[in-house]
Amino acid sequence: MDGDYVIGGVFSIHYYMHTVKHNYTTMPEPLSCTGSIDSRELRFSRTMVFAIEQINNSTELLPGIKLGYEIYDSCASVSVAVHVAFQLSGGLDPVFNTGDKCSQSGMVMAVVGESGSTPSISMLRVIGPFNIPQVSHFATCACLSDKQHYPSFFRTIPSDQFQADALAKLVKHFGWTWIGAVQSDSDYGNNGMASFLHAARKEGICVEYSESFSRTHPRSRIQRVADVIRRSTAKVVVAFTSTGDMRILLEELSRKPSPPRQWIGSESWVTDPDMLRFSFLAGAIGFGIEKSVIPGLRDFLLDLSPSKVADSPLLTMFWEEAFNCRLVKSFQ
């Protein structure tokens, strides 16, 4: 949506990127996302639209100014996030300004996102030098608190340093002193687990194993991590992983169930309702971010008539996945 000032939005609405083998004889295909839609990330993006509409409809917040938005799907991919960052910082107007005075009229004023820490860091390398503020709703890596390296980064969610300390105290509270640990092979997972292990040692907690993995790794790597969990003597597993990575690991574990384990989760996956489909996660515990009730948001999210959905390819994909049907746009 156009406006006097444009806000960029970047969300991991898909968790996979379509990979293309380059033959170096033709131009590579554009980067594109694939796989099923992450409904929580879609809600994040729709909430941004709701917030901007609320501001535009208010006579007190920004009177006489209309905000616009450009929202992108990063596929939770660094390469796509960087591509989007260049689009946002280079201006949305394809016409090059040849005037005597440089203008930033086409450049976004701020960016909301990204959901993950590593894609957020990658975007900051691009938009940071332009002093474009980036505000994340879900990037929690403690490394992003370094204002010397990331002066234009802000977030509405606490740093993982608080969560790591709390998880160590939680494990100690239940008397679990022999545990296993798995983490995403990313800034979020590696930094978060390092902070947790440091805090756990202070609490007298011993770690049998510490394994890192990513959903982009070969399946053999995921299988090896799953086998380590199955063979371990530790009955408690602390997982500092992203939702996408955790889903891949749990799908691998479900193929050959391991002995009962008590799962301790970071906020990224332990608060995701989609994880409830894995029955062996019953009793998983962790810390969630404090919630608030936003007046009007629920009605806005549920107000998806077939005509509105049909106008958006993304919402059409979500609708067809959610209701297992084919949405056909009718012309009258």
Rank of each mutant, 00 (worst) to 15 (best):
M1F: 11
M1E: 13
D2Q: 15
G3W: 01
Y5Q: 10
S12D: 15
Y16F: 14
M17P: 00
H18R: 15
T25A: 07
M27T: 15
M27K: 13
E29A: 13
C33W: 12
G35R: 10
R40E: 12
L42M: 15
R43G: 01
R43Q: 11
F44A: 14
S45I: 06
T47R: 10
T47M: 14
E53I: 00
S58M: 10
S58V: 09
T59P: 03
E60P: 01
L61Y: 05
I65L: 11
L67V: 09
L67A: 11
G68R: 10
G68F: 05
Y69M: 09
I71K: 00
D73V: 03
A81K: 04
F86E: 11
L88Y: 02
S89R: 08
S89N: 09
N97S: 11
S103I: 12
V108L: 07
G116S: 14
S117K: 11
S117A: 11
P119F: 10
P119D: 07
S120Q: 11
M123C: 00
R125N: 15
G128I: 00
F130L: 11
N131A: 07
I132S: 07
F138M: 13
C141E: 07
A142R: 01
C143Y: 11
L144S: 02
S145M: 05
K147G: 00
H149T: 12
P151K: 06
S152G: 00
F154L: 12
R155Y: 04
R155I: 07
R155P: 04
R155G: 10
T156Y: 08
I157A: 01
P158F: 06
S159F: 01
S159P: 07
D160Y: 03
D160H: 06
Q163L: 00
A166L: 07
A168D: 09
T177L: 15
W178L: 13
G180P: 01
Q183N: 15
N191E: 03
S195E: 14
S195F: 05
F196H: 06
H198L: 14
H198E: 13
A199G: 10
A199T: 01
I205H: 05
Y209M: 04
Y209W: 02
E211F: 12
T216P: 02
R219S: 09
R219D: 07
R219C: 00
R221C: 03
R224T: 14
D227W: 07
V236L: 08
V238P: 04
F240K: 06
S242A: 13
M246F: 10
R247A: 02
L249F: 03
L249W: 08
L250P: 05
E251C: 01
L253Q: 09
L253H: 13
S254E: 15
R261P: 05
R261E: 10
Q262L: 15
G265F: 08
S266P: 01
S268H: 07
W269Q: 03
V270N: 07
T271Y: 11
L276P: 00
F278T: 01
S279E: 13
G283V: 04
G286S: 11
G288T: 03
G288I: 06
E290A: 15
K291V: 02
K291R: 14
G296R: 08
L297M: 08
R298P: 00
R298M: 14
L301V: 09
L302P: 01
L302S: 03
S305I: 00
S305H: 06
S307K: 11
S307D: 12
V309D: 04
A310V: 04
A310D: 08
S312V: 13
L314W: 08
L314V: 13
E320G: 06
E321Q: 15
F323T: 15
F323I: 02
K329L: 09
S330C: 12
